[in-house]
Design a protein around this nucleic acid. Structure first.
Lengths: 240, 240
DNA sequence: CACTTCATATAGCAACGCTATAGGTGCTAG
DNA sequence: CTAGCACCTATAGCGTTGCTATATGAAGTG
């Protein structure tokens, strides 16, 4: 079950750590597991990497290359904010596909000690947002926007990782993503501001919904469903 | 340096753990430190709390009371979204004032294991957003909005905790906060990125009606009718 | 009193991250 | 060729971690 003995121990350690981080489900990854899989003993690890975190940092560097490659590889679409959207999605995807590695990179939080990779990810985002800024598409300095978006991005990814796989709903990601991007963008084209928002009630809302439904012929319900729905709506809205 | 011997060991353990979590800088908190400070031995801890995490959960419950008290204590301003803003700030403040406790509550992330408190915090937020929905002030279902906002809130707080104290810039928080709230709210000239204005008003109205119905337990429909009605409403409001 | 139940202590296990020390290996200098 | 010198790795074990099998005490109940 050990690794190719041809390779130098340093490489074997890196690969073993990466594999264990990628595959271990739930429980933590110990140095003993790593050294056993790499076919070396403890001092070898500490000789090359100083300590456990040093090894993980090295693994992360490799993983980060992959991450960055993902972030950079798609050709710029000419629409910087669209690229930011894709960077967000790539970030989430990376976190969900390699949760343990992601947790080492972004989830290992202690007071006043910032994972090195955060700064890099921030820089990548900022770079892209800078293009958006040049194009006059954002209304916030790129650096602040990058920090803000990254914080939300990490928060969403961590929350998704913490959820049971079958419950993971990527809509949380897309919704938060679009909220953040929308908020920093200067694109003011937005329809349908609600005028009477002040004192809405069941009745007002029902009336509004009723009118809107009849106007737009929503296709979310079948015609018979819609008929019954509208009847109930009428009962509610005419009740008080 | 031990605790008041009058108190029952269970309480002494809780206080010791809370104190160590609050004061320990950087390093982790061990069961031996806790039991030593509480003046008991290991089995006592495991008898009362099952395991270390059980003890921490209990501490967190107490800390959560404090957190919730902070979240609830300010009188409703009549402006739900303003209250959401204050809940956000209170959340960040709590995290920065008790970083270790916060990290146990929100930062202890492992795949597929969600800290219990997240659901509670989500419910608190959702409750407030429900009021906003009734007032027709948001264009997203309250539950989804709550999850999204909470994810961003946690992400921001974690990022601030990870930063050196002197670099912590609360503007990251306020900016992200306002971005998120702005994006889900309807009351601005800019509003959400809905393409079709007609459909958008359907959505807003449906969300408002849905929230209002659940709040007021309308008796205009029988329970079975209401159930079906709400299901249809959900179908409409969750379609974008 | 006998008996059960709860709560705490003694002692120790297995696993953890890590290291002092020593031995082996391959290189270069004399 | 050999001596010396880095460099690398293994043996063995330290101190600490979370946790527990077992035993003992206290407190209530018949």
């Amino acid at each position: 079950m050990s690794f190719d003995d041809q390779l130098p121990p340093k490489v074997r350690l890196l690969r073993a750590a990466a594999e264990l981080l990628a595959n271990s489900e739930g429980s933590a990854v110990s140095t003993r597991q790593i050294t056993a899989l790499a076919g070396v003993t403890a001092p070898t690890l500490y000789h090359h990497f100083g300590d456990k975190e040093g090894l993980f940092d090295a693994v992360v560097s490799a993983g980060f290359e992959e991450y960055v490659a993902g972030e950079r590889d798609f050709a710029p679409s000419g629409e910087p904010l669209e690229d930011v959207r894709r960077m967000w999605d790539n970030h989430v995807q990376f976190g969900l596909s390699q949760p343990h590695l992601y947790l080492v990179m972004f989830g290992n939080i202690r007071p006043e000690s910032r994972p090195a990779i955060v700064a890099d990810a921030e820089a990548l985002l900022e770079e892209m947002l800078n293009k958006a800024a040049i194009a006059g598409q954002i209304n916030v300095p790129p650096r602040e926007a990058a920090r803000s978006i990254l914080a939300a991005n990490v928060g969403v990814t961590l929350m998704l990782i913490a959820e049971p796989v079958e419950e993971r709903n990527l809509e949380l990601s897309t919704m938060t993503r679009d909220s953040m991007i929308f908020a920093v963008s200067t694109d003011t084209a937005r329809g349908a501001a609600q005028e009477d928002s002040g004192k809405s009630s069941v009745v007002v809302a029902a009336i509004a919904l009723n009118a809107a439904l009849q106007a737009s012929h929503s296709d979310q319900l079948s015609s018979s469903e819609l008929k019954l729905f509208l009847e109930w709506l009428h009962r509610i809205s005419s009740s008080s």
